[in-house]
Design a protein around this nucleic acid. Structure first.
Lengths: 138, 138
DNA sequence: GTACGTGCAAAGGTTTTGCATGGCG
DNA sequence: CGCCATGCAAAACCTTTGCACGTAC
């Protein structure tokens, strides 16, 4: 997960215990790409710490969200996924086959400042999603 | 739902029967704001047609999605919600209290064309979501 | 009249919770 | 050593499915 680092340190700094199950979850987050779901985190985490339970994954991710270290994201299905809590995420999604292209160029930076001023928000991240049909599905 | 009109006609045009339960769902969609969930549609629909069942709401919304009349959307929770299938949707969301502001100004139009050319997608809608803290929650 | 749509109820899947045990600090 | 975190299992919740009946066309 691109911009995630030192999750372990931040957890301890916030006064939480650094246990083996939590280390496993953190290692998964740091070594994999974005958009991981609870299921994926569980599966990968059990390769590191086989006793890792589903409930612990849910509780750990909830904790990381509360600490603002990760953020939930929903793509084209109802599965909760997680991304780093800062920066932008840009998706071009085919509404038929579900293919997701991540693009870099984004025009949201200017708008971020503008909205921050207009509404007094402290903006931490943004998501720009285009939906349509990919060449194959048209 | 702002850009939705004549759902009934479009349903019939596509060869589907216009039943009372479906009319109730359509009336709810046309007379309420965006972002309705299955639950909200069921509750409102039952005010119009009391026997309306949850299963029918799910099936009707799935049908409307297949016909490209509405589109599923996920905001800050795992609840599936629905918006009109075209145009843009712009949200400024507080990650703590969940307040959603909808803003109008959007810089995505230019990017739409650019992405369409670059990747060959036929782009139907977009979603631009900023997440942060509202003035009260900072 | 026929095929499609519906309501009900059961099944399936996912997320949350309660509780006794275990391990971090 | 005390408290927090964990695993397990049950509960709660949401969504899907099967089936007999009803209704739009």
């Amino acid at each position: 997960m691109s911009e995630i680092c030192n999750l372990a340190d931040k957890l301890k700094a916030a006064g939480h215990k650094l246990t083996w199950p939590r280390q496993a979850v953190i290692e998964v987050l740091e070594n994999h790409t974005d958009h991981l779901s609870h299921n994926q985190i569980l599966e990968e985490g059990q390769k590191i710490y086989p006793k890792l339970s589903r409930a612990t994954v849910y509780r750990t991710m909830e904790l990381l969200c509360q600490l603002n270290l990760v953020r939930p994201l929903y793509l084209t299905d109802a599965t909760q996924r997680f991304i780093s809590a800062t920066g932008g995420h840009h998706h071009l999604i085919c509404s038929r086959c579900g293919t997701i292209i991540e693009f870099d160029h984004c025009t949201a930076e200017h708008l971020t400042q503008q909205l921050a001023e207009q509404y007094g928000y402290l903006i931490q991240s943004h998501l720009l999603e285009f939906q349509g049909l990919c060449p194959d599905c048209q």
